[in-house]
Structures are given as C-alpha cells and as structure tokens.
Design a protein around this nucleic acid. Structure first.
Lengths: 223, 223
DNA sequence: ATATTATTTTAGACAAATCTAAAAATAAAA
DNA sequence: TTTTATTTTTAGATTTGTCTAAAATAATAT
C-alpha cells in the first residue's frame, strides 16, 4: 500500500496544493519554486509520478493530478494535520511552530497509527490553522470562510483559518494574539490602501491589506 | 546538532547494542547480520562513522563506539523507547506491535518534541519491554534483573523485561499473557531439559529453557 | 511572421547507500 | 610452519534524487 518514497509524497502534496490555486494545469516552475528545487529535478520526478499514474503529464504542457494521486496526497495531508492537532493540543506547542515537525511525522506514520491518533484526539475536523482534516477515505469538510479583507466596517468576525502558512506570517499574527477561534471587529477601513483597524478585546491593531487578505473568517455567530 | 543520516543512526544503534553483549570490539559481520546487510556495506559505513569520530575503527580489527557515538545512540534509544510508551499507554497498541513504528518515529522527532512527550507521559523510567529509558544526558537506570531460567522451584517472580525483542518471541509470550508486570511462580523445573512449569493466576504453562532464559524477572516484592 | 525571451526538457555528473565478485588479511588446522 | 578456511576490504555497478549547462519548445514582442 505504502509504495511511495517520501520525496514522491512531498511532490504529490505540493502538486495537490498548487492544483487548488491554479485554473488549468500546474506548471513545472511553480512546483520547483514550492519545493525549493530546480525545474530539471521536477521534470525527472514528473516522469516518475506519471509512470505510476499519480499524475497526468504531457511534455511542456504541465500536470494534472489523478484521482489516485489525489488520494495519496489527501492521506499525507490527513496525517500532517492530525499530527499538528496532537502537537498543539496534547504537547502544548504553539500553532506557529508545529508545521515542520508535522512535515516529518506525516511520512512515517502508518494508517493504523493515524486511525488511533484520530480517535484519541476525538476526531477533530480542523487543524490548528483552520484547515480541514480529510477522513480515511479522503473526504474533507469544506469550511465556507471569507477573507477578512472583504469584511465590512463595524461587523464582527471569528477567525477560522489562514490563507498563508509561512512561519513568518504565523509568527506575525501570533504577536497580535490572532489565531483561529479569536473574534475581531473591523473598526475602520482606510480608503487609500485598504488597510484596516481591527478591535480584539478592547485592543486595536492596524492590519495591512497583505495581512487581512490572508486571515480567513466567518461572520460572528455563524459557526 | 542533528547532523547524522537515518542510516548512520541505525548503524550506531546496532553497534551500541552489540557492544553490550560483546567482550572486546564489535566485528563487521555481526553488524552486517544485525542490520540485514552485507559486510561490504558495513565496511563502507564504518569508514564514514570513523571519519565523524563516532566510532574507533581499525581495518580488520573491528570497532569500538566512542563517547560521542554512544551519546548519539542513547539519544535515538531514548526516542525509540518513549515512543513505545506512547504507543502502548496512549494509543493502546500491544507491547508486541510497537517496535517497528517506534523504529521510524525515533528518527524524525526533535529533542524538544521528545522532551515534551516525556513530560506528557510523566517521565517513565522503562519502556513496555522493561528496557530503561535514557534521560536527556544519556544516563539510564540500571534494572538489576535476573533471568527466569535461574529461578528456584516454589519462588515467585515479577516479570520486568525480556532478553530478546523479536516479534516472534514477543507474540509467543503474549499468547500466555506474559509481559512486564505479570507475576509468575515456578511450579517445577524439569531435570532433563531445564524446562519449567510456571503458574500464573491458577493457570500453568510449560516454558522451554530457550524461553525462560529470555524472560527477565525480579523476586516478587523486590520492586 | 520572425525574432526575442522565457520555460521546459535532455544530457551528463554527483553523492549516498547499497550490491556482487574478487582480492587481501587474519585465524584455524594440519 | 605451511596450508586451508574464514573474515574483511576493495573495486566497480546500481538506484534515487539531485544538480548545472545546453538544447528544445512555447510564449511574447516587434
């Protein structure tokens, strides 16, 4: 069952994620960027993945992940997110420091281990960043969230996730105490640069558009 | 800090274990056997480990682990055993099925993760097989246990560990419900083959010398 | 449409860990 | 002390994933 190398799994995960933010097919250089490697290396790997029917690949025409490849990717993502819940909920790590550890743990854990871990954690539906956790068959609950940047002045929102997972961004949010579960209200939206003033328990923060764009929310009370 | 490959770590672990059951230096072929590989591969790796000063190696003369190498080995063993406790105590796996999973987890977990896991598990001193868990500095509590095979007729003993960790042996013991913590009394020792009849809560089992030799115990009440 | 630029692929090399087969060194036996 | 047997090491190949530099293809601009 577990017939893929760690590297193959990482490529599949990257391709899966890129597929969700790409209109047509995923191209070589975007994979190279997200994997911090060269296009030449990516091309080599694409051949291997296509050989295993995990992706559909045509020379010079980019890549589409197959049903089979998607299942593998979702299984890795499932493991990653469950480990993130374990690290924050059980071992009390901060939500902005668990990504790298989960990145390693996701590859070593057997399906059976993960099944038990999931039960032990009481079947969480979302990870600490608000991303949905696929079930054993790969199904995941869609979280119909909006970007804080499209909110209205005076309205109240509860943070449900983030649109950017870099450590730098997460640490930036952590400084303001912003994370999933926290409720904010928009006090003012600046006309000239669309930056906003938000209120969190009496404290006010100024968020640039770049930041508010990547904060995902639901209307307060809509959860 | 974590500058060694997984393979190097596995070799060090094997050499460390072999050192504890070997009078003089560890030879190439015993390492090859315990790693299920060839002597040629072992020789290659020994050069690499010697280069890093993790072992002392002289051509044709075998190997001695250095202080530095021992620290690395003990750190891996620490991780392995703490994960075994987690898998049995928290995820409710059986003691005879956790070895392989721990073998993978031991390499991915950072020292910080393990420190937190250890605290969460309430600083266990022994793993599910009765083997001592090294602390952060590599110190481990010596368990002064004896082999059940050297016990006396009529005496009562509590199982504290095993001298053999193969899955086959552990599953064999599991069939009789024998594991660390269980108390047995020796009903009879057969003269001709040193096999023994032991009593566990009113049930009697016949154990061959091969088996009783690898069951480690303490006198009942001496814990 | 042709020239220029950007992207993608191939070719050839490299490092890690492994293997088989042959050579060298050590240990055991005659 | 030779001879024989065993163990260990070297030599040369293989696999996986990577790289650089060059060639091929596609996209853009004039």
């Amino acid at each position: 069952m577990q017939q893929h190398t760690e590297t193959e799994e990482n490529y599949l995960k990257a391709i899966y994620h890129l597929s969700n933010v790409t209109i047509s097919s995923v191209n070589t250089s975007s994979i190279a960027t997200s994997m911090s490697t060269t296009s030449a290396s990516v091309t080599d790997m694409l051949k291997k993945l296509a050989e295993k029917e995990l992706i559909n690949y045509e020379k010079y025409k980019g890549v589409k992940i197959t049903r089979k490849g998607e299942k593998v990717a979702l299984n890795i993502i499932r493991k990653h997110r469950l480990w993130e819940v374990f690290l924050t909920k059980v071992l009390k790590f901060e939500w902005d420091e668990v990504h790298t550890m989960a990145e390693e743990l996701e590859h070593v854990s057997s399906d059976e281990l993960i099944k038990r871990l999931e039960a032990y954690l009481d079947f969480p539906k979302f990870d600490p960043h608000g991303d949905p956790i696929p079930d054993q068959s790969g199904k995941l609950e869609l979280n119909d969230q909006m970007s804080l940047s499209s909110g209205e002045t005076g309205a109240k929102y509860t943070i449900t996730g983030v649109g950017e997972h870099s450590s730098a961004f997460l640490k930036h949010l952590a400084k303001y105490g912003l994370k999933p579960g926290i409720t904010v209200s928009i006090a003012e939206i600046m006309e000239f640069d669309k930056s906003m003033l938000v209120k969190v328990n009496k404290e006010k923060f100024h968020l640039s558009l770049e930041v508010s764009k990547n904060i995902l929310v639901k209307k307060y009370g809509a959860i």
